[in-house]
């Protein structure tokens, strides 16, 4: 296992960087230019006081973009991996908390009829599970990058010559 990891570490690191970076870049890019939507989405979690939720909603997309660029280009990978992993853990916690509290956060209003559709609730719960699984995967990749930050196609290189690794 160890030998296998050593053999493929360079490419595994590159893949992790690109996957985590691309996901963060897309997620951040989609939200950065619709600040009202991002602010509204964060306050829908009902974890933070609204005012703070709005600031987080405004700031998080830009943090995601900045971290994504660092990962993709390959600068300060270890630090970027810590932040990326932290963001993923926050998301996992936030989703788990709405799930536990039974909030159906993508529906916002009670809709036209006034009753929550139970079949819809099941679908929302499945979405929560998938989102948590996805974020766990990304968090694990970030963890891998913390231990093996140096791989192929990276601006930053290991301080040690390759044969010592």
């Amino acid at each position: 296992m160890k030998a296998l990891n050593l053999k493929y570490q360079g490419i595994l690191t590159l893949i992790s960087r690109l996957v985590v970076g691309a996901v963060l870049l897309i997620a951040g890019g989609l939200k950065a230019f619709v600040p009202a939507e991002a602010a509204s989405a964060v306050s829908a979690y009902k974890i933070l006081p609204t005012q703070i939720a709005h600031i987080v909603g405004y700031a998080l997309p830009w943090l995601e973009i900045a971290i994504a660029l660092l990962l993709i280009i390959g600068i300060s990978i270890r630090m970027a991996a810590i932040v990326a992993g932290g963001i993923m853990i926050l998301f996992i916690g936030a989703i788990a908390s709405v799930w536990v509290r039974g909030l159906l956060i993508d529906c916002g209003c009670f809709g036209g009829g006034g009753v929550i559709d139970l079949s819809k609730a099941a679908a929302v719960h499945r979405t929560y599970a998938l989102e948590i699984a996805r974020d766990c995967g990304l968090a694990l990749m970030s963890l891998y990058l913390y231990f093996f930050p140096y791989g192929l196609l990276s601006v930053e290189k290991s301080a040690l010559p390759n044969e010592e690794i």
């Binding site: 950065a32 600040p35 991002a38 602010a39 600031i55 405004y58 700031a59 997309p61 830009w62 943090l63 973009i65 900045a66 971290i67 660092l70 600068i75 300060s76 630090m79």
Partner: peptide, 18 residues
């Protein structure tokens, strides 16, 4: 330098969003 750049991007972004 990298931490500073990231902070700069985030602060500029927040001001833009507000």
């Amino acid at each position: 330098l990298v931490i500073g750049m990231v902070a700069l991007v985030v602060v500029t972004g927040v001001i833009f969003s507000i």
